[in-house]
């Protein structure tokens, strides 16, 4: 009888611990979005008009057999201004950066680049957000590091920093 009662209490405690663990785990799990989904997958061969020449280009027309960076930016995005010097630093390291100008006014985008200098090899226009969706992006700024086989190695949400630069420089 006592053994049966003890077993019941033990089961109750065990069940409580399991339920508590599930709730606790769910509470602290960052489930809102998973930025790692695109890592390791093939970079889509984005195709769009360019900002300066208004000519349709695809990524494979701009880069071949080399690592490169894809950066989503907009003139109206404040964090993009913060990361701009880091992009310039990467440009000076001879790494090609392809800009994706997200839902922007072309005149403002050009003014932005003129004001803060141009780190981009080419800028593709993303007028309706379709290019960003192909990249699995959530907003601006977002940056992708792509290796020479067109595989996405890293994705950074928000303004890039020196850690990202290190990652880029260390990638062969």
């Amino acid at each position: 009888m006592y053994l049966k009662k003890g077993f019941k209490i033990l089961s109750l405690i065990l069940a409580s611990i399991i339920i508590f663990y599930f709730f606790y785990y769910s509470l602290f799990q960052e489930k809102k979005f998973n930025p790692k989904v695109m890592i390791g997958s093939q970079m889509p061969n984005l195709q769009s008009k360019t900002l300066y020449k208004n000519k349709v280009l695809s990524l494979s027309n701009i880069v071949s057999n080399e690592k490169f960076i894809v950066n989503i930016f907009a003139s109206w995005c404040a964090p993009c201004k913060i990361e701009h010097p880091v992009l310039m630093q990467l440009k000076n390291s001879k790494i090609k950066i392809i800009g994706i100008n997200y839902k922007d006014n072309q005149k403002n985008a050009k003014a932005f680049i003129e004001k803060y200098q141009n780190p981009f090899e080419k800028v593709l226009i993303d007028s309706d957000g379709a290019l960003s969706i192909q990249l699995g992006a959530f907003g601006v700024p977002e940056t992708f590091l792509v290796d020479k086989n067109f595989t996405i190695i890293a994705k950074h949400i928000g303004p890039i920093d020196n850690n990202f630069v290190k990652k880029v420089i260390n990638l062969k």
Partner: peptide, 21 residues
């Protein structure tokens, strides 16, 4: 990028892009 909303309900840029797409 929202708290407990579907793309249909939201007016965020992300949701608008997905709707257009």
């Amino acid at each position: 990028v929202c708290e407990g909303q579907s793309v249909y309900e939201s007016n965020s840029d992300f949701a608008k892009d997905i709707k257009t797409f």
